[in-house]
Amino acid sequence: MTDFSGAAFYGLVARLDELIATRPGGADGFSPSARVRTHQNGGYRSAFRGRGMEFDEVRAYQPGDDIRTIDWRVTARTGRTHTKLFQEERERPVLILLDARTFMRFGTRDTFKSVLAAKAAAVLTWVSMEGGDRVGGAVVMPSGIVSHRPQRSRGRILGFVKAMAEATQNGFGAPPPRLEPTLAEAIGRLRQGSRPGTLVFLVSDFHDFDAAAARELNRLSLQCQVTNVFVFDALEAATPRGGHYPVSDGEAISSLNADSAAVRAAYAQRFAARRDAVEALSRQRGMAFIPLQTGDDPAILLHPERMQRTRSGVRGAA
């Protein structure tokens, strides 16, 4: 069994102590779209409006509305009948999908994508735990998919984080398996374990985002509030300025001609098409889209507004 504790493996694999160190201070849960109330353990305001415990807004009365909810003050002031809307209190678990497959084991800045993804997933896990939420999800490795039921127990959550670290080490240094789990399979597995209103984070490079994955993601978005964390490396987005570079998939070796403008354009377009496909579906289905580049601090996920900047060859966060 390989000992990954040495400094030589920094950035290549994630260690449990590194993932524990990502735990942010002062976090008390998530507040996406101002629909989450994190000061009571597990207390969330669902997207389903009805007669609940907390007032939400006033709108014009519509036939079928409960007359007991009429706001008489607003009605008297405007001359039109208005009714109150409330948010129902519902518990909402958090599910996190961590992609640590072979394609994620690449990076030119600080860490592999797989390590950055593990740290990002750990940050999301700790924030969920501090909010009193049940948190779990799925870890996708070259050897398969391991699911973790949402739990509040600190011991079980630590076990989930430990599985994230181990996923980045799974099969490390060995030839990649002939068949790895697909993104579509992973999303489908996560969807089976979710229920309406679940808060979901997908942390992946979406390298095999195909029609099947898009269908599964669309189905997931119909019942869950989804955030897609798009992990990438700058060298994926654009080639070096010039020269000939050897390229290998671990078996075959080829050459990348970065002197050719056509090659550079095609290279950049391939990445842009993948990113655009994920971002476009996110926008269409009301999902959040957050790009995360190797070299970034994973804690920036908690402050996506700080990512509004232009990167070399890549647009800023939407």
Rank of each mutant, 00 (worst) to 15 (best):
T38A: 14
P246W: 00
S194W: 01
R15A: 01
P177C: 07
R35A: 07
V94L: 09
G155N: 08
G316I: 05
S128E: 06
G132F: 07
L220K: 09
E89S: 12
G43V: 14
R49W: 04
W72C: 11
P304F: 04
E236H: 04
R92W: 00
G171C: 13
I20G: 00
L302V: 12
I187F: 04
G295I: 04
T227V: 10
Q192F: 03
E216M: 04
E88D: 03
L95Q: 14
F55R: 14
V247E: 02
S194N: 05
R219K: 10
H207P: 01
Q293R: 15
T239G: 06
D110V: 15
C224R: 07
E236C: 06
A186P: 05
R195A: 06
R275H: 03
R15T: 11
A186S: 15
Q308D: 14
M1V: 12
Y44R: 15
I145Q: 09
L19K: 11
T310V: 15
C224M: 03
A266P: 00
S204Y: 03
G43Y: 10
G29F: 03
P32W: 10
G79L: 01
P240N: 07
Q284P: 00
R195Q: 09
A261Q: 09
H39Q: 13
R59W: 11
G155L: 13
D205I: 01
V226A: 05
Q269K: 11
G144C: 10
A34T: 06
I96Q: 12
F30D: 11
V231A: 10
P304I: 08
K162Y: 02
R45F: 15
A266S: 12
R191A: 12
A100T: 09
Y44V: 11
G242H: 13
V231F: 03
S255V: 14
I96F: 09
G107S: 12
A273H: 05
A76K: 11
I290Q: 09
D66H: 08
R15Q: 09
I67W: 06
V139G: 11
A8K: 07
A27M: 07
V314L: 10
L12F: 02
Y245G: 04
T102D: 13
T38V: 13
Q169T: 04
R80E: 15
F103V: 06
E54H: 10
Y267A: 10
G136L: 09
S282K: 03
W72H: 09
E236P: 02
P150Q: 11
E166G: 02
P142Y: 05
G79T: 06
